[in-house]
Design a protein around this nucleic acid. Structure first.
Length: 436
DNA sequence: TGACGTCAAGATCCG
DNA sequence: CGGATCTTGACGTCA
């Protein structure tokens, strides 16, 4: 029986229990990049300049997130150079209070859940006193940043357990001891994750129980470094999920895929949509999934389409992938064009076709056709000399040399800017998995 | 001692 | 000269 109140409640519940996807640190489709500072260039002036710049970069990424409905986002620890080092004595949250205020407002209005992931040098269980002290300073730096950005107890910093030093039991006990000494402000945000070499899910579950710490289940680390006689991964996933209390917010997991023919644990360039779809099937609800992948926000867009399909997003994605697909596979190019003419194109099929094209070996005849197609944007404007160059590069391409023809088109696009082509990933960095 | 993972800066090479 | 391609770096652990 239809009941309006019940309907509203169901919708609300779904909102409460949805699965959300996030990405980490960098964005391949924004204009600005973070800058870093080296010891030999350290000065108050340079420090201020770079922090100011980096806050602007962060704002650009957060705006991109707002526009693209990203609700889960990890901020790079490189935001403040030497953030936890005595080299940086700047009271940056005061110097840049206006900027931080703006960032806080942006994060709040767009409902983004921000987090951090201190790196491999932050080791709380080291036997070396100096290392532990430096690590605590690093956690304090991240907490300081969280505070400046208006965070609460659902905003987390993710830590690995650390080294083993020949005695895992002792190393775990040292983690417990050092954890207990931390300020409550830091503890409120700390969560730990299984790693791919030393500490498996049983190890972190042990710590979680002792310290009431929320756990992040990392699928790839678990696959590479499972506990002895491990049962199904889903049991571990569910146990990790239970470690999150109400104050901690939605449970978070990390998801990544192994890069083919590379060392175990190395992240893939792009998330394969079918594997991700299979993974999603089993997860239930109420979850934030942090993608760890080289093409960052681009895999966010594709994976998010499985959860929130939107035809306008697919159309926009097509304008970006189109020429990469065309260069690899005319057949897939036509198939996607047909797919997008239908009233509700299936994102899974769309990305499958894009991926399939990306994985194809180069067929130089096919590439030449695509090349000629793209040349269509320039051929009326090109000078006779440029036309000659085009003919030469087309021959190079047909013989299997991609680099020079590619660079030529890139130069042409710069010289004769074209609005439509400028949206394409063709000339943008970040199309690693197309092996362009 | 270098690999690990990552990416910007600086250096160098190339057309 | 600009652009592409390399080498390096603040931090820790492990082989």
């Amino acid at each position: 029986m239809y009941n309006k109140d019940r309907q509203v409640r169901i919708l609300k519940d779904r909102k409460m229990t949805e699965i959300r996807i996030g990405y980490a640190c960098l964005n391949e489709d924004t204009q600005l990049n973070y800058r870093t500072l080296r010891k030999d260039k350290m000065s108050q002036e340079n420090l201020k300049e770079i922090i100011g710049h980096n806050l602007l970069v962060l704002k650009e990424m957060l705006l991109w997130n707002e526009k693209n409905q990203v609700k889960v986002y990890r901020i790079s620890s490189d935001l403040i150079p030497f953030g936890s080092s005595p080299l940086n004595g700047l009271a940056w949250e005061e110097v840049f209070q206006e900027e931080f205020k703006e960032l806080r407002e942006l994060i709040k209005r767009s409902g983004q859940r921000i987090s951090f992931h201190p790196g491999q040098y932050t080791v709380l269980n080291s036997p070396k006193k100096e290392v532990v002290e430096a690590s605590i300073k690093d956690l304090a730096y991240h907490e300081r940043l969280l505070r400046a950005l208006g965070a609460n107890s659902t905003n987390k910093m993710v830590l690995h357990v650390g080294g083993v030093y020949g005695d895992k039991k002792k190393a775990l006990e040292r983690f417990i001891e050092n954890y207990e000494k931390l300020d409550q402000d830091i503890k409120d945000h700390l969560v730990i994750e299984n790693d791919h070499r030393s500490y498996n899910m049983e190890d972190v579950l042990y710590l979680s129980e002792k310290l009431k710490l929320p756990l992040i289940f990392d699928n790839l680390h678990h696959e590479i470094n499972p506990p002895d006689q491990a049962g199904p991964w889903k049991d571990y996933f569910l146990r990790a999920k239970k470690t999150w209390k109400k104050k901690d917010g939605r449970p978070i997991i990390h998801y990544s895929q192994q890069k083919k023919d590379d060392r175990p644990g190395s992240h893939s360039d792009h998330i394969e949509i079918d594997s991700f779809k299979d993974f999603l099937e089993d997860l239930g609800e109420n979850l934030d999934i942090m993608l760890e992948v080289k093409d960052k926000n681009r895999s966010f867009l594709s994976c998010n389409q499985l959860i929130n399909p939107q035809i306008q997003v697919l159309r926009d994605q097509w304008s970006k992938y189109k020429y990469l697909v065309l260069l690899k596979s005319h057949k897939n190019y036509l198939a996607i064009r047909e797919l997008l003419k239908t009233s509700s194109p299936n994102p899974l099929v769309f990305y499958r076709l894009v991926e399939e094209a990306a994985k194809k070996e180069w067929d130089w005849g096919q590439a030449s056709n695509g090349y000629a197609h793209i040349w269509g944007y320039f051929k009326k404007k090109a000078s006779p000399g440029e036309k000659d160059q085009y003919e030469k590069h087309l021959k190079d391409l047909a013989k299997g040399d991609l680099k020079k023809p590619w660079a030529f088109l890139k130069r042409m696009q710069k010289k004769y800017p074209n609005d439509y082509l400028s949206q394409s990933y063709l000339f943008r960095p970040g199309n690693y998995w197309f092996k362009g």
